[in-house]
Design a protein around this nucleic acid. Structure first.
Length: 748
RNA sequence: GCGCCCGUAGCUCAGUUGGACAGAGCAGCGGAUUUCUAAUCCGCUGGUCGGGGGUUCGAAUCCCUCCGGGCGCGCCA
């Protein structure tokens, strides 16, 4: 393969773009070749749909255009790939079978088995000894970079020229309140973007914009003046905090003396009073400990260093007043005598209205862009008539900070050539204070990984919040563009919305008493329900039998002490495994159920569906993974080999991937598409496309499994080939699920 | 009133941003197990893509209109 490995779709797209460019007489860069995965397997693997639309501009018949494209794409280097590596001895590998034109002018592309086989064969084996992941307690406080990718599946990071500096704003809970289902989607969807963009090689900063400033702190500070704060190490911290918050609130309403103390506390806090500040800090720290527990359980990458809440913009330094002043200076109201200027993108002006400082928005026709119920123009208020700032002000300040000040550490890393070093990590962002080789990667440092310095300001801002805040973000982005903090050619602004979680009644999910469902309780129930599902499976299992024996033990005097001890130990081990599996499956089911739907639509929460073994669910995918690993273990022990030994044999360069059976070929094609699927997710920010891919992959594997014996394959070459397919599938599932924030288990 | 989102099989949802006769899972019916983990696989049944009009080689997808549902709309976040 060429030095820069690209996805199959990219490879075909560039070939066809060149061919089309020659046919149409334009530059290849200006062509969209419209190469897509084929709608139906009968039409091949990919299809090019460009001929029909091109026919009109060329004033030719579509089929004629298609024929010319086919000629260009087929001749010379168009259809073959120059190979220079030793293993293939310079042979030319034909990429696709003779192209076919069908229907009105579709060009059907079928990859050759040889190409597919070699494309997959070039994926190096996974690193057998990945760096151990730090435990969460270490990671929560750490500012070290994330652990590197143990296995990139042969997918290189983007090259330096395309590296984005991305801020992902997600989760954003409120201090002293328990997270509820409303925070679930933001937290896990945002985390997927972080993972995928990091994997793609972009520089990513997570920002947890926590609600840690405001009037509610007055009540809490006053309350904790004569009450103990919840113990961070004792039980459910968040529940205790929230109970205190409620108590404080009701006291605020009934006790005038307390109320004035609370108001005084707010003033003191804002003035930097030391006692008030210490109390505030203690409350925040207690609350963060609660969040940390939930984040670890959810397997979310957020850490303490990612906390950059509302207080950041007004606590130690007033970052809001300068923002307001800059808006006022740069967006002055238009004076009446001004001629209406040409307004291609509309206009924003900053002026006082009814005592409040506001931003007003106008469209290209200079008409108000947003209107209220009475038809009057609708502003974004950035300073209340009493002089106080609001969330809009903080959001503007945060946006300015993120496009101008926030720091990214750039590592100048060239895309690695593949096969040079097997399975180790190429392009994790490394911080300058971390030193070289901080992650136990054993490869020679053949590629440049040294940090080159700090860059300020993001080139892409992603906000993950529910769809109801859409209007707010439209205003926010319009203001940012108008004032020049986010020039469209330099900064991409994306509000990633998602729908609500609904109950069976199709109304937003609530408890019977009408409250938001607490995230912690939701996860606890998920684990309990996963246990119930697993128990059914364990009925015929030895572990379950052991349970039975153990329960009957005191009645059965024949059971001697030694046997009892053995049973007890097995029971303990089995139970631990069972706990682990239930925890992993339960949390995975909740996360996956959320991610596998188009995030824009509301979704109906259903325990039975998310824990089902059939269909597009976490348990199905995890089971597929466990099943593959089981085959692999069986193959290894059957020959008295270790997993590592077997892997060495399976990934030996002499092994040729045979794709003779239809199920083998379908699986191979699917595996080859992981790369383009991840690329797609990185650009359209739709996690469910990766979910669909993984489900199809698992289904393809199941069909392969039913049809193609692996361990008992007819001959050794087939056995090794199929074991290779098994391992590649396991790795693709593991990587894909990991990008979705879901970890696999080796045995279920 | 204005703005945004949605309406696809009995149910829950996909549909690659305008491409081929609209696809899965569940439910229903019928098959496959001396297993490489059946927690699986295969087959069948099931549709006026909310209705109508338009744009073009081609529409579930884009435009208009109506019906039905959700959300948002000045000093909360």
């Amino acid at each position: 393969m060429s030095a820069e490995r690209v996805s199959v779709q990219e490879l075909l797209s560039s070939r066809f773009a060149e061919a089309i460019a020659r046919v149409a007489g334009v530059a290849p860069q200006s062509v969209d070749p419209q190469v897509r995965a084929a709608a139906d397997a009968r039409f091949g693997d990919y299809q090019c749909n460009v001929a029909m639309s091109l026919a009109r501009t060329l004033k030719l018949k579509p089929r004629e255009v298609a024929e010319r494209i086919v000629d260009e794409a087929t001749k010379g280097a168009g259809a073959t790939e120059r190979r220079s590596d030793e293993a293939t001895k310079g042979e030319a590998a034909t990429i696709f079978e003779p192209l076919e034109i069908a229907g009105p002018g579709f060009i059907n592309i079928r990859l050759t088995d040889e190409f597919l086989s070699r494309y997959l064969a070039e994926i190096p084996a996974a690193d057998a000894s990945p760096a151990p992941a730090p435990n969460f307690a270490e990671r929560w406080d750490s500012v070290a970079p994330d652990e590197p990718w143990a296995d990139r599946f042969g997918i290189p990071p983007v090259n330096a020229a395309h590296r984005q500096r991305v801020v992902v704003d997600y989760s954003s809970p409120n201090i002293a309140k328990q997270m509820h289902v409303g925070h679930l989607r933001s937290t896990i969807i945002g985390d997927v973007f972080v993972r995928v963009l990091e994997f793609e090689g972009h520089a990513v900063r997570r920002q947890n914009h926590v609600g840690d400033w405001g009037t509610q702190f007055g009540m809490l500070i006053a309350y904790y003046a004569d009450h103990p704060m919840p113990d961070v190490c004792g039980g459910d911290v968040m529940a205790a905090l929230e109970a205190d918050y409620r108590a404080a609130r009701s006291r605020f309403e009934s006790d005038p003396e307390f109320a004035s103390a609370a108001r005084l506390a707010v003033t003191k806090l804002q003035q930097g009073d030391v006692a008030a500040r210490l109390s505030w800090e203690a409350i925040c720290l207690t609350s963060e400990a609660g969040f940390a527990g939930l984040y670890v359980q959810l397997g979310v990458k957020l850490r303490k260093m990612d906390n950059c809440g509302e207080s950041f913009y007004q606590r130690d330094e007033d970052r809001l007043t300068p923002v307001v002043e800059e808006l006022r200076a740069k967006l002055p109201p238009r004076s009446p005598e001004d001629q209406p200027p040409p307004l291609p993108v509309g206009r924003v002006e900053c002026r006082d209205d009814q005592g409040a400082l506001c931003l007003f928005f106008y469209d290209a026709q200079d008409e108000p862009r947003f209107k209220g119920p009475d038809g009057s123009e609708l502003p974004m208020i950035i300073r209340k008539s009493d002089g106080a700032f609001l969330y809009a002000t903080t959001d503007l300040a945060a946006l300015r900070y993120r496009t101008r000040e926030i720091e990214f550490v750039e590592a100048a890393t060239e895309p690695r050539s593949h096969g040079a070093t097997e399975g180790s990590e190429g392009a994790t962002e490394r911080r300058s204070d971390e030193g070289e080789n901080g992650h136990g990667a054993t490869e020679p440092t053949s590629h440049a990984g040294a940090p080159t310095g700090v860059l300020r300001g993001a080139t892409r801002l992603i906000y993950v919040t529910d769809a109801r805040q859409k209007l707010h973000f439209e205003m926010l982005f319009a203001a940012a563009r108008a004032v020049g903090w986010a020039p469209p050619d330099r900064v991409r602004l994306e509000h990633v919305t998602f729908g609500s979680v609904l109950g069976d009644d199709k109304k937003p999910l609530k408890t019977r008493s009408g409250e938001n469902v607490k995230l912690q309780l939701l996860l606890n129930e998920a684990i309990e329900r996963a246990k119930a599902v697993l128990q059914k499976r364990f009925v015929d299992d030895e572990i379950a039998k052991d349970f039975q024996i153990d329960e009957d033990a005191n009645q059965d005097e024949a059971l001697d002490a030694e046997l009892e001890a053995v049973v007890k130990e097995r029971r303990t081990v089995g139970y631990r495994l069972y706990e682990l599996v239930a925890n992993t499956v339960g949390v995975a089911a909740v996360k996956y159920a959320d991610l596998c739907r188009d995030r824009n639509s509301d979704y109906v929460f259903s325990w039975d569906k998310m824990l089902a073994m059939q269909g597009n669910t976490a348990p199905y995918l995890m089971y597929a993974y466990a099943r593959i690993r089981s085959i692999y273990r069986k193959a290894a022990t059957g020959q008295g080999l270790s997993d590592a030994d077997l892997t060495r044999a399976v990934y030996d360069p002499s092994v040729r991937l045979a794709l003779d059976h239809a199920a083998e070929r379908a699986l191979a094609l699917r595996l080859a598409r992981l790369h383009e699927t991840i690329d797609e997710l990185a650009s359209n920010l739709l996690p469910h496309v990766l979910c669909s891919y993984l489900y199809e992959l698992a289904a393809d594997f199941m069909r392969f499994y039913e049809n193609c014996p692996v361990v008992q394959a007819a001959d050794e070459a087939t056995r090794l080939s199929r074991l290779r397919l098994c391992d590649l599938t396991a790795r693709a599932l593991k990587l894909g699920l990991h990008l979705l924030g879901i970890e696999v288990i080796e045995s279920m």
